[in-house]
Nucleic acid binder design. Sequence first.
DNA 1: CACCTAGTACTTTTT
DNA 2: GTACTAGGTG
Length: 878
Amino acid sequence: MNLPFDPTGEPPLAHRAAPARSPLAAAERAAIEERILAPLNDAQRRAVITTAGPLLVLAGAGSGKTRVITHRIAWLIEHEGVAPWQILAVTFTNKAAAEMRDRLYEMIGEAARDVAMGTFHSICARMLRRDGEAIGLPKGFAIYDADDQVRVIKGFLKEDDLPATGETKPSLILGAISRAKNDGLSPEQMEDRAVTHHERLVARFARRYATELKRLDALDFDDLLLEGLRLLQDAPTVAERYRTKWQYLHVDEYQDTNRIQYNWVRELAAKHGNLCVVGDDDQSIYSWRGADIRNILDFERDWPTAEVVPLEQNYRSTQTILDAAHGVVSHNHGRKQKKLWTELQGGDQIRVYGAFDAEDEAAWIVRRIEEASAAIAGRRADAPEPVSLTGIAILYRTNAQSRAIEEALLRSGIPYQLIGGTKFYQRREVKDALAWLRVLRSDSDRISYERILNVPPRGIGEKTIELLRAASDPTTKSPDGVPYGHVIAAAGRGEIAGISTRARNALAGIADVIRRLRDRIAAVTLPELLDGVYSESGLRAHLASEGVEGEERWANLLELRGISGRFIELAPLDALDRFVEETALVADQDAFDGDAERVTLITLHAAKGLEWPTVFIAGLTEGLFPHSRALMDQEQMEEERRLCYVGITRAKRRLSLSYALRRGWGDGDGTPSRFLAEIPEELLDVANDEDPRADGDTRFGRGFRSARAGFARGESWREGSGTPGAPSGAFRPGRDLEARRRAYGAGARSGSLHVPDADGIDEAPDDDEFLGESPELLQPVGRVPPWAALGRGVGASSPTVETPVESVGRPRVTTPPRPRIPGERYFRDGDRVLHPTFGEGIVVTSKLTRHDEEVTIAFAGSGVKTLAASIAKLEVQG
DNA sequence: CACCTAGTACTTTTT
DNA sequence: GTACTAGGTG
């Protein structure tokens, strides 16, 4: 999380003139010029010193755009004498903003703190927090995420007795509402334009949704932008203040801005026109979120005096990688013609592997990583360069693909960090705790109240909630409705008929807890407030009685408490506000740690803006990547292609592309992706080219060469041309495929040694032929618990484990307990531990929190868990 | 009212 | 393989 900056505050909003610019001595000036401009090429330099008026920087992948923005800001401050707080930089993620601030800090020191930086969402949120009242917004509005939104819609569906599936699926309705909002349509306009039955239905929901959010004092993500824009349009005094304050505007990833964001920027820049946007039309991958690629394509039309600076020298990748990326993206139409170049001629060929299935694919990736990291230990003389795990990333199209890869990594003991997936702030217990905090700030936030009412279970069920809701809804007596918090207090006093005694007592208890916690807010720190929430809400006791799952959740709550400590310098009420706000706006990517000695697992979308020496892209089959939803649509297909371009250009030195001939449930038919066919063949090193269909097996995709030839002839595949889920019995893969699957497949998973596969084929593999082909494949997997080497560091030899696997979970040796020293970690990386339920595991890492130690453990059968040492009954094994 | 089970439907990407 | 739902039981 990016620590406090106040977009409006220090220095105060009241307009101040820029500090009087004392004329710089010539020598001083020359020194600044040298320091800021010397590291730049000609084009970058031009972008940095062009400070007045509109500027479009067309920055190809890896061409140093972040560097241009930071140097430009440094230039503005040091050379042009602009005050830091007169500069605004909008980035795509909070992480990017934090990084930019760090880099700027290195260049110019303390002044970096005062530059306004953040995402569109976070900047708007803070402006609205401060000035929202000017357009009638409540001071303490809540920010609703996808989960909260779904709850609102589900409430409607319940009222109407409609199913939450099919055409009234909440996410579908919300998607339609969001699109309309981003197109600037009001619910009324939606209704007017609705033609189909479904459009009318969505329009009605949109109207209801808007009314309801207003009543709940809540804004969703779209509202933050819309209201942010409205603030600039409808509150002239406020708008004028911001326009005067922010004299120099920067927008990164401009190709991914939507219409609302575009208008917001235009409003801010209206007066001075000092607007620098940086982007690359080839990297536009968010049209589904309303991003409008025309914003960048038409910039010169919108700002006729704009200067345009193309950055075409790439500093990141080898020529081979750039040629591959260009090979793919040049199949798109309507792009700004450009071709990146690099001084790094040549480079390793791009490896391509056609795997049997997703497990085989993951295993292949793991082997390549092991090979490369063996080079660190100096085991491989021919290794090109040592590789650290920090420098390796595995990219994929959908989050679901991470599972197979995670399992393979876990098995081989390679540490990894997963970006995305189930996010910390979306976990149930974390959201529950945050709901408690939100409730403390607001009487209206019904969604949050309903979240906490029965967590832990207090005998408040659907019926009670219905009564509460009815009491809260507008009536003739109270046309605006009654705030939910008041209703709860009233119900606790027995003023609402029909509520059971049990529920009534529970509600009185909740009202009482809320009252007590509210009294305490101003007097205690945020972590202490959370302690109060945990104990008085009963959350803590509840989790303690929930066994192992409870431990894990409790660990998350401790983590949340730890995070809340970052706001400790602020006044308690502000700290609460900021904490609740920022936890609502954190992005996945914000969790990425670029220094951790771990392999990174990440979606292609989230990988934008990042880079690694070694990159794997997995799942390159038709239907998965390009995704099936793009197969019929030219525009969407082009976006998939840009996504592929983004993926390829993340790699600095080595790139591997892989696909699986057979995938599970419907995500692709196993035909190698057309993107593979679009890369010039001489750049590729095809490790495996089997074509099961040549043997008449239609359960698999075509082989690489056959597919390539097919694409060259203009053939196309549609989803389903393979036959995933074909009737069993037809399954007759070539024996080498079968053997590979056996070596890597189900039988080796998660410590259980032998599971007959789903097809019932359970004959002995033809080991001889198999071993002859690649002897290492049978090695540890399937013979020893695969997780045996966990936590021992990469490149270390796997320890021999004599224990038969059947005995896993039973202690063999018991050693005297290790002394517990306060303030020091008790568990060490690599410790073998025993847990009453999860069985045996290896400590991956642990860290101290204020009152406890959180231990991350890889268990044989249950995966990786983080447990609180004080609660979990963990035994260290000898 | 809470918990369990079995059955069903569904899978993009995210601030 | 999972996430969610409905329906039954305690």
